[in-house]
Structures are given as C-alpha cells and as structure tokens.
Amino acid sequence: MSLSEPFLSPSAIVAELRAAGCVFAEDEARLLISAADGPAALAAMLERRVAGLPLEHVLGWAEFCGLRIAVDPGVFVPRRRTEFLVRQALALAPARPVVVDLCCGTGALGAALVSSLEGAELHASDVEPAAVRCARRNVGVHGTVYEGDLYAPLPPTLRGRVDVLLANVPYVPTGDVELLPAEARVHEPRVALDGGGDGLDVLRRVVAEAAHWLAPGGSLLVETSERQAEGAEATVGSRGLTARTVASEELYATVVIGTRPQT
C-alpha cells in the first residue's frame, strides 16, 4: 500500500506503524488520526513517522504533566519519566516560589511547575535557539525564557533568591550517544543528550554555581540515570548542598536533590 493514497483506514495505519517498528502502533494511530485535518495531511504525517521522526515532532506536541507542550522539529522531546522530577519540585516549593529552569528545552518542566503553583516567578534558559523559541510558546506570559549557556543569561538579581532550580541536564556519556534510539540520536540536538565522558560534565557546571543562586533552603533538582546516581549525588553534595537521591520504579526515573542549608 502506498502512503500517498488519499484515504488510509485505521487498520492500515496501524499496520504501517507496526511494520516501521512502532511498539504502541494503535495509540499512535489514534493520535495521528485525531491530529490530521484531512486524508492528505494524515498520509503526510504517517509518512514522516514511518521514516523515523519522533511522534511528538510529527504531531507538534507532547503530553507532559497533563499539559500539551509544543515540540518543534529538532528540539528535545520531554520524557514522561521527567514528570517525577516535577513532582519532587512541587513537594519542595514554598508559596509563591522563584523558579529557574536550566537546559529548559521546550520549557515543559517550568511550564508544568508554574501551572500548579500560584504566584510562581519563572525564569528559564537554553543554549539552543530553536528550543528557546519553543519554550517561549509554552511558557507564554507565565515566565521569561532567555537564550544562553546555563546561568549566563539570567538576571543577576536572581542570585540568592531561587527557591526551585530545575536542571534537566544532558547526562548520556559521550560514548553511549551512538547507542541511543535513532529518534533521539538523529532528530534531537546532541547538546541536549551528550553529558561528556561520564555523563556528568554539565551537571558539574550547574552545581559549581548553584549555591550562589539558591535561596537559603532552596533546592536544585536534576535527573540522572540509576547507574550514575551515586556519582551525581556526590557531585551535587560537593559544593555546599545537602544531597539525596529519590527514584520511581514506575517511571524508571532517578532524581538527585541538593538543598542549600538555611544558614
């Protein structure tokens, strides 16, 4: 069957997706059908998905913490496991918190957090121009997104005021990047994946300055892998923060939290 045919039945779409290796073919078919505004658009979307583009890039959005997050081509796709990091941040956030989202990508973490926190002040940054454009759409009037490397573009007035510092840094070791699924390796920016030799290079840079930006009692939250958790916790605890690790078996997620002492 040709993908250029003017009409594709749901069963035919599922068959095409299965043949392309899509594990959740039925779910993806429903999403593609609901998103397409006609048979021609559906055929084009299916062709892109079968060619290996991430489903979120084909749809133009990803579901994250109950929100529909815009995801542009070439931008890192927010993972469902990262919802666990947002939950931990919500549990730690004081009333009307100051929130910073470093390596923000689509801005999904910050957008999800402030949508659940009344009066939150959100600042986010990313080095990738495409990610910044996407994050500005997702954050909208609820925060400010800056283009630049980590803390560099943030207003100096935030120093010592940040209650929740989110940093979903890249943590894949350089040697493992080529082992990632093609959806990530080919279609997402390497800067959002590659964490250096041991996967902790960007984390070290975040931790080096974190205590200067955090308010007393404020917390840094970073996602890592289970095998890197010990090293990541040691890194977070090496610069005056009290570090601990929490994990979710359900989401296969590991988060390291570093809190600045009150005094």
Rank of each mutant, 00 (worst) to 15 (best):
L3Y: 08
S4L: 12
L8F: 05
A12M: 10
I13T: 03
I13W: 02
A15E: 15
A15I: 06
L17M: 13
L17G: 10
R18T: 13
A19G: 14
A20C: 11
G21E: 04
C22I: 15
V23F: 12
V23C: 03
R30Q: 09
R30D: 09
I33M: 12
A40F: 12
A41L: 09
L42A: 06
L46Y: 02
R48A: 15
G60W: 10
W61Y: 15
E63M: 02
R68S: 14
I69P: 00
A70W: 02
V71Q: 08
V71E: 05
G74A: 11
T82G: 08
F84H: 08
L85F: 11
V86H: 09
Q88M: 11
A89L: 07
L90T: 08
P97K: 07
V100F: 04
C103D: 09
G107E: 00
L109P: 01
A111N: 12
L117C: 12
L117T: 09
E118G: 14
E121P: 01
S125Q: 11
P129G: 05
A131D: 03
V132Y: 07
C134T: 15
A135M: 12
R137D: 07
V139S: 09
G140H: 04
V141C: 13
V141Q: 15
H142E: 14
T144A: 15
Y146T: 15
D149G: 08
Y151M: 00
A152I: 05
R161Y: 02
D163L: 03
V164K: 05
L165A: 03
L166T: 00
N168M: 02
N168G: 15
N168L: 03
Y171V: 09
V172K: 02
G175D: 02
E178P: 00
A182Y: 01
A182T: 10
A184Q: 09
A184H: 05
R185H: 06
H187P: 01
G196M: 10
L200V: 13
V202A: 14
V206L: 10
V206S: 06
V207P: 01
A208Y: 00
E209M: 00
W213A: 00
P216L: 12
S219M: 04
S219G: 03
V222C: 14
T224F: 10
R227Y: 14
A229L: 09
E230N: 02
T235N: 01
S238G: 07
G240A: 06
G240W: 02
T242P: 00
T245A: 08
V256A: 04
I257T: 02
